[in-house]
């Protein structure tokens, strides 16, 4: 796996991991706010689920940009580790969560043998991540002790959030980034250049 990667791709994954670790940490505050907001309506635990897709975004961005086996898994794992190092409230089992999430996204790309990076696959990767991470949290965070209807709603919300935020926002952000020209030396940048300049806005 590492033989295929260029050093600059690894450093890129790492820098993305660091950048998103900061964003992930900020998202915790946002999630806690949502929990507070929703608790009076009787659906407090859903607060985090609405924005859960944020925590998966780096694996989709890295995989979409680099397009090599392992990019989704590694970048998420790095982001999770860095998040712990800069003081996440979730503690070291966050590294486990990150590994599981990364594995989820990686599975989706593996199904296409890392050849297909169309929107539907990115969305699928988001969904897989959501399912994998939910299974892990079912165990580690004690979702098992919740009422089942709530668990079902949480899962569905997390999947929708992953479709919108992880899959679609992640792709959109990467495409915006490619337009700046800085991805010239990566797979996504090359694809954009081949498509040429079709994006004339009036």
């Amino acid at each position: 796996m590492t033989k295929q990667w260029k050093l600059k791709e690894i450093v890129l994954m790492s820098i993305l991991g660091v950048a998103f670790a900061v964003i992930y940490l900020l998202a915790f505050g946002l999630g806690q706010g949502l929990v507070g907001l929703l608790t009076p309506f009787g659906i407090g635990p859903l607060g985090y689920e609405f924005i859960y897709g944020i925590w998966f975004i780096v694996s989709i961005i890295a995989a979409y940009i680099i397009r090599k086996p392992g990019a989704a898994f590694t970048s998420e794992l790095i982001a999770g580790t860095v998040e712990v190092l800069i003081g996440s409230p979730a503690g070291p089992q966050l590294i486990m969560s990150a590994a599981v999430q990364g594995l989820g996204a990686e599975t989706a790309f593996a199904l296409t043998k890392w050849q297909d990076y169309r929107t539907r696959i990115l969305v699928l990767a988001g969904v897989m991540t959501a399912i994998f991470s939910f299974a892990w949290h079912f165990y580690s965070a004690g979702f098992y002790a919740y009422e089942y209807w709530l668990v079902a709603i949480m899962l569905v919300t997390r999947i929708i959030s992953s479709i919108l935020i992880t899959g679609l926002l992640g792709k959109w952000l990467s495409d915006q980034l490619a337009k700046t020209g800085v991805l010239r030396g990566y797979a996504l940048g090359k694809e954009h250049r081949q498509k040429g300049e079709h994006h004339h806005v009036s």
Binding site: L7, I10, L12, M13, S14, I15, V18
Partner: peptide
């Protein structure tokens, strides 16, 4: 590679 990114 990871250390290099972490520096930033």
């Amino acid at each position: 590679g990871v250390l290099a990114g972490y520096r930033f």
